[in-house]
Computed example of a mutant assay.
Amino acid sequence: MAAVLAGPSALSFSSSSRVRVSSIGSVRKPGFRLGFSRSEFGGSRISISPAALVLPILAPVQPIVARRVCRFTGKKANRANKVSFSNHKTKKLQFVNLQYKRVWWEAGKRFLKLRLSTKALKTIEKNGLDAVAKKAGIDLRKE
């Protein structure tokens, strides 16, 4: 006995086995592959038409998360040991001292709100914002 499901699923199978089908048309089975596969009931053969497998590919949307890395100096977290009184060592992270700071940009005649480390702030005070940004490869016009 052969059965064909109409609609977007376009799934056909033979014999009287039961197959679970989702609304998109894929078989809910851990080892499912494209083309031909065996169902888990009675060894019947399953085939899916290529038209049912054409789905729009959407890129996963990732939230914008500020990383704990200074863009100007490249400083990032350091792995260190936390040593207890009994000299028991456990791993911990020592994060960079990142601060949000409004910095005056002389060439652009405006303030920039930057997230930078305190070490980068001292370097900017010494060498200037343009020199430090140029060395780091940062375009300040986009900030």
Rank of each mutant, 00 (worst) to 15 (best):
R38G: 11
S39N: 14
L55G: 03
V83N: 00
A66D: 09
R68Y: 04
P50H: 07
K75S: 06
V65R: 09
S9P: 00
A59V: 10
P63G: 11
L53I: 01
I57V: 13
L114Y: 06
L112C: 11
A66Y: 12
T90C: 00
G35S: 08
I64K: 08
F32C: 06
T118W: 01
F41T: 15
N78Q: 13
Q94K: 14
K82L: 15
R18A: 14
P60N: 15
G108Y: 01
M1S: 06
A51D: 12
T118E: 12
D130G: 09
S44Q: 09
N78H: 11
K101W: 06
A6W: 03
L98E: 02
K92P: 01
C70H: 01
G137V: 08
S23Y: 09
R18Q: 12
S44P: 02
N127K: 15
S39L: 14
R115V: 15
S23G: 07
K75I: 03
G43N: 11
G42S: 12
T123M: 09
S17V: 06
A2R: 10
F41Y: 07
F32R: 09
V21F: 04
A10T: 01
A77D: 04
D139K: 11
R20V: 14
L5M: 03
G74A: 02
S39K: 07
P8K: 09
R18N: 14
R115H: 07
A107Y: 04
K76Y: 08
R28A: 11
L98V: 00
S84T: 13
L116E: 01
K134H: 10
Y100G: 04
K82Q: 14
I24D: 15
K75F: 00
S86D: 09
A51W: 05
L34H: 07
L112Q: 06
V69Q: 09
T123P: 02
F95T: 15
E143M: 14
E40A: 12
E125W: 05
G25I: 00
A3I: 05
R45A: 09
S23R: 09
A136L: 11
P63K: 15
S26M: 07
H88I: 15
R68T: 07
F32M: 07
I64V: 13
K101F: 02
I48F: 11
R115W: 03
K135Q: 13
F95M: 12
L55C: 06
A136T: 06
K113Q: 13
L11V: 15
A59M: 08
A10R: 10
S86I: 00
S37N: 13
A120Q: 02
K91S: 08
P8N: 13
V96I: 03
V69P: 01
L5D: 05
L34M: 11
S12V: 10
L112V: 10
S15I: 00
K135G: 05
R67G: 12
E125Y: 06
P60S: 15
F41L: 12
N78V: 15
Q62N: 08
L34Q: 10
L11C: 08
G43E: 12
R33H: 12
I48E: 09
S23W: 07
I64Q: 08
T118Y: 06
G31E: 13
